[in-house]
Design a binder for these strands. Structure first.
Length: 624
RNA sequence: GCCCCGAUAGCUCAGCUGGAUAGAGCAGCGGACUUCUAAUCCGCAGGUCGUAGGUUCGAAUCCUACUCGGGGUGCCA
């Protein structure tokens, strides 16, 4: 195995061809501005015609007023592809001016050699950035529901991709741990404690119930009363409702004063708040761990941590005339956005925009973020548009080097049920995430048991768990994040086609092949240094796909779109399946040199498959 | 009203940022297992890329308008 990681030793054929084509373009069209010198190299659309194609002739011909095919002919004549590809001729030109290129087998082998390194051809960036990724964002006293699945799974994948590309990543979970709703729960628990309940023993599920009860208790049904008065309902109903409203108003008052106590650091309130915090976070972080999302306590940066930063921030904006009063509220107006950003309510309270501004200030200023990526529901797009603009106006997005940090809302769509409506439980409530995962594991377990009746229970359980998480995560990651998608157990766990289990199966098959090889006494270390076997179309196709890994990862990174990596993973896994059918490795009659060459190709594909899964946060298994 | 997002095969989705005859998976039909793991592979069939214009050698992709669906829209988060 090649252990060097010097970019110069890595011969990416696409890159090498790009260079050669650019040289040829410069020779043929010397007056063309350098910015227009582009080779447009990509994998061939029609594998029969070659491995790569250049689409450069058409746009450049237009630019310099020449016929595309004529220009293509000149490029083909001028280009030197020796050592990389078969010589180009008139025959290489097709259609309006596509230039088809077939790689030399030696060049393909050399490229694979170079890729077969620790880093799999991914070089350290020249300018590593610090990238903040806003993930997860749970709320105190609430269980994680399906809504948190995507911000956790996609957010973590976005973070992992950046880490894999060599950037410094700091995850931030913007926990909803502050404000009136939490104060309501604190108030409730305080009452329960006074009545003799041992509140240190409550579970998150119970807290969730208490949260809902507290909400309901404080909700005044003033509109209902207005309606009854208008229509002239029963006097008795009117009185009852009035009483209920009075109760709600009283409860609200208590909650509000509890909030004041909490904010001013009242010891008893803070003690109860901390209890709620610990119960919630213990459960939620356990779910993150179960989802193989690298989100831990150190990534939690709740709204409460900004509480002392809000007033000074608002004062700063007032002092610099960035925020102005409007109808009693304090707002920031930004060019191009009609809706002003409200940062202080008429009653003096702050809003989530205020906290998010403080978060940007901290993330860029203190944490040194060159880029801040928010993996949050698309429904918040206006909010982030406002907050980003306001932060820019205030200069809170200025990095230490004086440039503006890139603020990105990597939004995602809603998870729908079979009925194409947002996924809810039968009673219309948000679906609990742990329950959903449990069901996925249960269903996976049935299939695993069916396929492996002999397997010991504990191994079967471990595999079912991994398969289920892979299935759920892959389903969530593999479509464009901006789109809504329907959550279907049957589809994601079907183990057929473009699913998580299919990827795991490809990996398990290669691992099984390697185990079998060792059983047969094949020296895998020797195979790891053997020349790649590249004669069969299936071998070449897989090899070419392996080589695309770095560029795919880079594209997934710059767009913050993990689904691109999923698409690649599926293509590579299915090319392996074809290779596996068509190219025997350990079967009788395969010569040792070919066997080793195919083993090496399989081992490299395995490493790319595993690296892709790891970069997406998808667990893998050794057998299934 | 205004703003944002989506629309591709019967269903679920890709389409590498403007390139060749638009691709997969399910479902349907027909093949391949005393297996290097058939949780697989091969073949067939299936499309007016929401509609109408525009930009150009070339548009699912870019621009405009419209239709349908979803979401948001000043003091919740």
């Amino acid at each position: 195995m090649n252990t060097t990681n010097d970019p110069k030793t890595i011969l990416d054929p696409a890159q090498a061809l790009d260079d050669r084509f650019c040289d040829a373009i410069r020779a043929v069209a010397p007056d063309l501005p350098e910015s227009q010198v582009k080779a447009h190299i990509g994998p061939s659309r029609q594998p029969k015609l070659g491995d790569f194609q250049s689409n450069c002739a058409m746009p450049i011909a237009k630019q310099i007023g020449m016929k595309p095919r004529e220009l293509a002919a000149k490029i083909v004549e001028a280009i030197d592809v020796s050592g990389i590809a078969q010589p180009l001729t008139e025959e290489s030109i097709a259609g309006p001016g596509f230039i088809n290129v077939s790689l030399l087998q030696e060049a393909l082998g050399t490229a694979l050699d170079a890729m077969d390194s620790d880093q799999l051809g991914i070089s350290v960036p020249a300018d590593p950035k610090t990238i903040i990724v806003d993930v997860c964002g749970v709320n105190l006293a609430k269980q994680m529901h399906v809504g948190h699945l995507r911000s956790t799974v996609i957010g973590d994948a976005i973070a992992r991709i950046q880490e894999r590309l060599g950037h410094e990543v700091k995850r931030q979970s913007h926990v909803g741990d502050w404000g009136l709703p939490i104060a309501m729960v604190v108030e409730q628990l305080s009452v329960m404690e006074a009545e003799g309940t041992d509140i240190s023993k409550v579970s998150l599920a119970e807290l969730n119930t208490i949260y809902k009860r507290a909400q309901a208790k404080c909700k005044a049904e003033t509109r209902a009363l207005e309606i009854i008065k208008k229509v002239g309902g029963h006097v008795k109903a009117e009185i009852e409702l009035s009483e209920r409203i009075a109760d709600a108003e009283a409860a609200m008052e208590k909650s509000k004063s509890r909030l004041v106590a909490l904010q001013s650091g009242d010891a008893d309130s803070v003690r109860i708040w901390q209890l709620i915090y610990d119960i919630t976070m213990t459960a939620c972080l356990a779910t993150c761990k179960r989802l193989h999302a690298n989100i831990t306590d150190e990534h939690s940066a709740g709204e409460s941590t900004y509480r002392d930063e809000l007033a000074p921030l608002v004062q700063d904006l007032i002092d610099r005339n960035i925020a102005v009063e409007d109808d009693g509220a304090l707002v920031v107006r930004c060019e191009g956005i009609k809706e002003p950003t409200i940062i202080r309510k008429r009653d003096g309270g702050f809003l989530y925009a205020t906290t998010d501004l403080a978060a940007i200030k901290r993330r860029v200023g203190k944490l040194g973020g060159d880029e801040v990526v928010y993996c949050v529901d698309s429904r918040q797009s206006l909010h982030f548009k406002q907050v980003f603009a306001a932060a820019h106006k205030a200069g809170y997005d200025k990095t230490a080097s004086g440039s503006d940090a890139t603020l990105v809302h990597a939004m995602f769509g809603t998870i729908l049920g079979e009925d194409n409506k947002p996924l809810k439980s039968r009673s219309g409530e948000n679906l609990n995430l742990s329950d959903l995962l449990d069901e996925a594991v249960m269903r996976a377990s049935a299939s695993v048991a069916e396929k492996n009746p002999e397997m010991p229970q504990d191994e079967r359980d471990a595999i079912s768990e991994a398969v289920a998480m892979a299935a759920v995560k892959y389903a969530d990651l593999s479509t464009e994040r901006i789109k809504d998608y329907a959550f279907r157990f049957d589809t994601m766990l079907a183990f057929e086609g473009d699913t998580g289990p299919y990827m795991l199966y490809a990996i398990a098959r290669i691992k099984n092949m390697l185990r079998k090889a060792e059983e047969k006494g094949v020296d895998l270390n020797a195979a790891a240094d053997a020349p790649f076997s590249l004669n069969e179309p299936a071998e070449r196709a897989m090899a070419l796909m392996v080589l695309r890994y770095p560029s795919i990862l880079s594209a997934a990174g710059s767009s913050h779109e993990p689904h691109r990596l999923c698409g690649y993973l599926y293509e590579l896994a299915s090319l392996f399946a074809k290779f596996y059918e068509q190219c025997p490795v350990l079967k009788e009659g395969v010569e040792a040199s070919q066997r080793d060459g195919r083993l090496r190709l399989s081992m490299l594909a395995l490493r790319v498959l595993e690296d892709s899964c790891k970069t997406l946060g998808i667990p893998t298994v050794d057998r299934m």
